[in-house]
């Protein structure tokens, strides 16, 4: 069981890393707006449909996923 003496500090360090990333996320405002990013990911970037070309339907993209 002597290994616990080593494992416990290791686990604590890992947990501290997660705490640090949580603090970073809060401080950079990631918990300020939880709604818009969910909408923002739906349209796909880069595709610029021409005025009369075939239109990509976002709904079909969602259904494929």
């Amino acid at each position: 069981m002597i290994v616990l003496l080593f494992l416990i500090p290791v686990s604590l360090v890992i947990a501290l890393a997660f705490l640090a990333s949580f603090v970073w996320a809060v401080r950079t405002g990631q918990f300020e707006d939880t709604e818009t990013p969910a909408l923002r990911m739906l349209p796909h970037d880069g595709v610029v449909p021409s005025a009369d070309g075939p239109k990509t339907n976002t709904l079909s993209v969602i259904q494929k996923l």
Binding site: L42, P43, V48, P49, A51, T58
Partner: peptide
């Protein structure tokens, strides 16, 4: 919107 290639607006 169509002229500027933002016609995707209507499909969203």
């Amino acid at each position: 919107l169509h002229q500027e290639g933002l016609g995707e607006f209507y499909t969203l």
